[in-house]
Design a protein around this nucleic acid. Sequence first.
RNA 1: GCGCCUGUAGCUCAGCUGGAUAGAGCAACGGACUUCUAAUCCGUAGGCCGCAGGUUCGAAUCCUGCCAGGCGCGCCA
Length: 571
Amino acid sequence: MKLSLKDSISQALQDVVNALLAEVDATKIPAVVLTRPKQKEHGDYAVNIAMPLAGLLKQNPRQVAETILAKVQFPDAVDSADIAGPGFINIKLKAGGETDILKDIMQMAESYGRLDNNNGEAVNLEFVSANPTGPMHVGHGRGAVVGDALANLMNARGYKVHKEYYINDAGSQIGVLANSVWLRMQELQGIKITFPEGAYPGDYIIEIAKEILASQDFASFEALDDVSRLQQLGELAVNANMAMIRSDLTDIGIEFDQYFSEKTLHESNKVTQLIEKLEADDLIYTGTLPPPKGKEVVDYNPVKQRLFRTTDFGDDVDRPLQKQDGTATYFAADIAYHADKFERGFKHMIDIWGADHGGYITRVQAAMKALTGLEKQPEVLLVQMVNLTRDGVPFKMSKRAGTFVTLSEVVEEVGKDAVRFNFMTRRIESQFDFDLEAAKAKDAENPVYYVQYAHARIHAVLRKAEAENIRLTDIKDIDTSLLTSDEASKLIKMLIAYPDMLDTAANRREPYRIATYIMQLAAAFHSFYHKNRVIMDDEALMQARLLLLRATAQVIKNALTLLGVSAPESM
RNA sequence: GCGCCUGUAGCUCAGCUGGAUAGAGCAACGGACUUCUAAUCCGUAGGCCGCAGGUUCGAAUCCUGCCAGGCGCGCCA
């Protein structure tokens, strides 16, 4: 691929810098970084390279900048370069100097912004992993949308992302689930029951109970002993919940490459083998844990147990792998799971967790270090909590009372595109106040319609052109240098910035940048649209503007596609 | 008590890993549709960037200490 104008300019500057610092250790030579100045008077590009160089060369920055400018060979599109402020080099381009990009965009179409890299790094991305004990709530939805967009984004930038969902279908919670279903089944048979404190109260449990009774005889369960009855009902209930979860995920356009069952880890003895291996490696010893800090512990009684030496690998305290009854802890299964990912060839794993699991990161990474030697694996992204409101009034949600709003209810009310886009408009580190009415509103309060409207508007113009029998000139014959208005220049700069933005977003695991970018791009377009009439008598200018519109629509669509949001051609 | 996240305009948030005069949207005020979609645009006003120190040519950004909010801290997942 040919070098972009930006890259040619920074290369030209880098050559001079390298020559000036020929004596200096190559690894210490600072890299030239072109930025887009905020002030128009500061030119099209600005470089601060003279400042870090000043220290190395023991000259003042403005003097260094002069030396650089005296030697540099800029590409033709550069009009002028001057020194400003403490030592910035401001570069001004010739009018229409960057407009060739429009032709490149049209040629690359949906691959504009993407890196074709056939041997990209394989990454295992685990997200959602909502427990199969009930429906997904909005918090899961945020993690799901962010994870899916991150997968799309990283795939677009050359990684090979494997999307995985970990099903926690083992452990005591499944027993609680099974018992809850059994109680409801009895209730449906007219048997009087008392619903205990810890059981799951939600109505979906009744639905599951009805489903089971519809296909199987109540008496056949009654005949079973407690253990096998709960075992069977647990499996049925997990399957029912997972079917519901998968259907909810489909409704917001999310598909996983793999669903991984925790239960299979136990059944294949991977967990016990893991413990044996750690024992053999002398990483487990008998000890007593100190009492937990920070809350009243009434019933704390210290017990001797076998502990994994995670503190040797960066953890705060050593961790037990087995409960007193001998069964494995969740932690034991989870490290067996991550070790399994490693064995499947993934040296790079990303997990997306809710903020309430933040305290868990250190111990998993410590365990992985002990097992594989890998540092900081898995890479964990914490998604902060979602506060659901309607017209600013928070919902009173209680799992115990069974009054929580599910993700599918929200998606049904608000719509997939609005849910997905809104969840992408903030950094994951900030808590999200999600207002149902605001997300539903088809007005300026709602960014998703703002950007979709821009796309639809462009297509309205293109339809109008078609209706007036305007033939689109061959792209190579269009004179893009006619696009000199301020609004056109701003729009073109936004289009040029797209690949760099994706690169930053992928490297920093920040897919929200795509949403922020699309909003800015849409704003640049709307502004252009108001001041620059497209369909007009000046044939050459009209063709150039039509090209600009087509390129803009293409980039909006490319970006929305990464977010899993549709780009309608009319609204 | 300890750990992680957050604190920027009245509200919701950006600020491109240290750069030039801190930016958007909403709300407020004033304008723009006989012309390609007004779900739009243009303008005005609004800021001790939580507080206090420090690092340097230069700090919303990095370091330290406070303050406030969220999440978490037994073999629950």
